[in-house]
Amino acid sequence: MPLPLISERPLPGAPADVTGARRQLIDRLSADGRLPLGDWETLLSSPSQEDRAYARDRAAEVARSQFGNRVFVRGLIEFSSHCRQDCLYCGIRKSNRDAERYRLSPDEILACCAEGYRLGYRTFVLQSGEDARYTTEVVTDIVRRIRAAYPDCAITLSIGERSRAAYQQFFDAGANRFLLRHETADSEHYDRLHPAGRTLESRLACLSDLKEIGFQTGAGFMVGSPFQTVNHLAKDLVLLSELRPHMVGIGPFLPHHRTPFADQPAGSVDLTLFILSLVRLMLPTVLLPSTTALGTARAGARESGIQAGANVVMLNLSPPEQRPKYLLYDNKPVSGEVVEMTEAVRRSLGRIGYEMVVDRGDHPEAAR
């Protein structure tokens, strides 16, 4: 039998009539998959522990109805810590002169894939800062080499904003998925998190291009980022309901000591778990990671994320000596042999009644 959810500090309580209204909204979300902005704001305003438990239990039922007790594992390869962008929340922003920078060669990336494949990984996630050294041609060549070596595997890219022509070239070379978190659906809030010249309009245009090309496309946002309001979170969820992405990445904001937001508080784990459940109810077949940031924010939270409706975990296949240099936020876990980490996660999922499977774990639409 699954273990009970790891104990959590209750959020402030709510009057019974408000709690009842939230449960009605949760039921409507489960039935319709959409809510208007005002209802999202009501749902997200100081949910009680009972509200969160109700959403969690409903979301767990939906996830099991779609995927059984299966959890898909992804092999993450962080291949460059160089970045031309200067996002105010990110530890590898170009203004961080203390950041240690590295790049993996194509051969080193293929070596990471080889180790992952031997251990049962069937999805490789290539992630980096926006590094101009990895041109469209270089990335295309890497994708082609992985596709030729591992034709039964999925290839996911998470390399930021590129031209539509570049995205098309990656897709034609054999990439299947692309992760591009929108970070916030409010343009003013977006401007407060990013340097001048970066716009929400550009980010959303990239997401539209990716979907039209045929990628399994992932969006997402941070919970508790600086200046974030309930209205911002509500807009994020409205955007997801309209975009209908195949993947959604959500984790708590975690500060990095060498960014302008170093002194900002971390995002709420409890609220992040609640939102994961709401996303599962809104998008029943979505591929929903229980993120590294969630597990970093609180011990056992990665397992809580699975119990809240998530069905994906990512484990780091990058060379151990390079992992400490890809530090997006403070206290990110960087140590451990891949085989040991894999078995540890397999055991921890088994203790709560889930199975880590050897599978590409495609979105059901793509699988059909």
Rank of each mutant, 00 (worst) to 15 (best):
9 R>H: 10
12 P>N: 08
13 G>V: 06
20 G>V: 04
31 A>L: 10
36 P>M: 04
45 S>P: 00
46 S>N: 14
48 S>N: 09
62 V>C: 02
67 F>M: 03
67 F>P: 01
90 C>G: 02
91 G>L: 05
99 A>V: 07
113 C>H: 08
114 A>P: 00
118 R>W: 02
121 Y>S: 05
125 V>C: 13
126 L>D: 05
127 Q>C: 07
137 E>K: 09
142 I>T: 10
148 A>M: 07
151 P>A: 07
159 I>E: 00
162 R>M: 11
167 Y>K: 10
170 F>E: 10
170 F>R: 09
171 F>T: 12
178 F>Y: 15
178 F>E: 09
179 L>E: 12
191 D>A: 14
194 H>S: 02
200 L>G: 12
206 C>L: 08
209 D>V: 05
218 G>A: 10
231 N>W: 01
233 L>M: 14
238 V>M: 03
241 S>M: 01
245 P>V: 07
254 L>I: 14
256 H>D: 13
257 H>A: 13
259 T>L: 03
262 A>K: 14
264 Q>P: 00
272 T>P: 02
273 L>R: 03
278 L>S: 10
281 L>S: 02
284 P>V: 07
300 G>K: 06
301 A>R: 06
302 R>S: 14
304 S>F: 01
308 A>S: 15
313 V>P: 00
318 S>M: 04
318 S>F: 01
326 Y>D: 14
334 V>M: 04
343 E>G: 00
359 D>P: 00
360 R>I: 09
367 A>R: 14
